[in-house]
């Protein structure tokens, strides 16, 4: 299970790398969906690795990445562009509510235009490789691994490395992306890094659940506020690109 866990951590980093490299917002969203699903799997695997992480607790914390996986597209659609006027489709009530929530067809054409980076793909790959090495170097110097290191310590060390990688890659994406929606995607990747850190560091403590509630609330509220502010900014400045937000810039 320990090997599987570490494999999942590498896949999580892979999704973050892909999200940072790809030049299409739609692809970033798909890789985020995979990343969140992997975090659900990691929470599940944690049951077999950490003593204090039981089934109920694991199911509780899985709610966070699951919700984000489902909600990211509708919220991102709102941050991309203001929704057009719509008419209510005549369907059964529950199905209609669900359809209305997940309907992002009006924003998808914009997603093809958004997601371009300032740096070219090669430079981005080099930068990400450096950041990931930095994350692994920091993690292994803080929690050194030796041949006699216990399995759980290895997991914590690798988990710390993966979480720092997500944090740095997400942060780099925020600096590297050209539009506000991709900017927000960077923030979401960073937040997944926090989730991972919380699992590996707090799974064997009594604080795990309270931390997840705090983290979940924070993400939900931040996304909600951003889904209000981003379109307002786009409407006011007539652009979704960071480079066009120059009203307050002192050095134009």
């Amino acid at each position: 299970m320990s090997v599987l866990f570490r494999g999942a951590l590498i896949l999580v980093i892979g999704t973050a790398v892909y999200a940072a490299i790809t030049n299409k917002l739609n692809n970033k969203l798909t890789s985020y969906l995979w990343q969140s699903s992997l975090l659900v799997a990691i929470s599940f695997m944690g049951i077999f690795l950490f003593e204090k992480l039981n089934w109920i607790l694991a199911l509780g914390i899985m709610v966070a990445p699951l919700t984000r996986a489902f909600a990211v597209r509708p919220f991102m659609a709102l941050t991309t562009v203001e929704p057009p006027p719509t008419k209510r489709a005549a369907r059964s009530r529950l199905r209609r509510l669900w359809r209305e929530f997940i309907d992002t067809s009006w924003a998808e054409p914009y997603w093809r235009e958004y997601g371009t980076s300032r740096l070219g793909q090669i430079s981005t790959i080099v930068a990400i490789a450096l950041l990931t090495s930095l994350a692994y170097g920091t993690a292994f110097s803080l929690i050194p691994l030796a041949s006699d290191t216990s399995d759980i310590k290895k997991i914590i060390s690798h988990g710390l490395a993966a979480s720092l990688s997500l944090l740095l890659i997400g942060f780099f994406s925020m600096l590297n992306e050209e539009d506000t929606s991709s900017h927000i995607m960077g923030l979401l990747v960073m937040e997944n890094g926090m989730f991972l850190a919380a699992i590996v560091f707090l799974a064997d403590t009594d604080f795990l659940f309270s931390f997840f509630i705090g983290l979940f609330m924070y993400v939900a509220l931040t996304l909600f506020i951003l889904s209000i502010f981003a379109p307002r900014l786009h409407r006011a400045s007539k652009s979704a690109f960071i480079g066009d937000q120059t009203e307050l810039r002192e050095y134009k």
Binding site: P83, T86, E100, F101
Partner: peptide
């Protein structure tokens, strides 16, 4: 503009 989508 008006919308009937509950989420919006």
């Amino acid at each position: 503009e008006p919308t009937q989508n509950w989420f919006h």
